[in-house]
Amino acid sequence: MADGEAGVFHMLVTGAVECGHFPTYNNLYCKYTIVFGDHWTATAGIEEGVSQIASRSSHHPGEFVWNFPIDITLKSQLPRGWPQIVVAVYGLDMFGRDIVRGYGTCHLPVTAGHHTLKIPTFAPRPTTRLQHILGWFLGQRPEFYESTFVAAGEGREVVRVRSHGHVIVKCNVAFKDFHRLGFHNAPSNQN
């Protein structure tokens, strides 16, 4: 079946960026972006959002609850370029400057139903010790030009990071016409 006449399938994703686990930080907020390939289009909903600033609680140290909703419908002809959710967690340092605390990415689930995604996060490291010290004074910490950089494999080899913490995303996924187009996302051993 050629790409042009194959028709489209729809994918509905609804859920929330529920919480993050960052033991040594305080006052964090989270930005999410849904990144997809050129065969995909968003038909309804918002592709990115920024949450409120959450402070940590004394009962659950290191836990930051955002409960930031995600609701998006996508369509595509082919599964390649499958959508990913990119999260970027920012925090304020002691001078009130925005500092990135971690980036993370994960593909959205390939099967329908309820899913919990645990997304480990990492922040870029300065190349030299001197830059590390200067960055602390001048507030110029290394960060990616676009947070969606982490959703692609190109250019990653020149980056050094320190991974720390994770973000929990809960989502429900439903498909329309995925099987009708001949795609299989589960083993066919039922019959």
Binding site: F122, R125, R156, E157, V159, R160, V161, R162, S163, H164
Partner: peptide, 10 residues
């Protein structure tokens, strides 16, 4: 093929 970043984790 590809190459990942260098990670020195917490």
């Amino acid at each position: 093929d590809g190459r990942t970043h260098v990670d020195a984790p917490a």
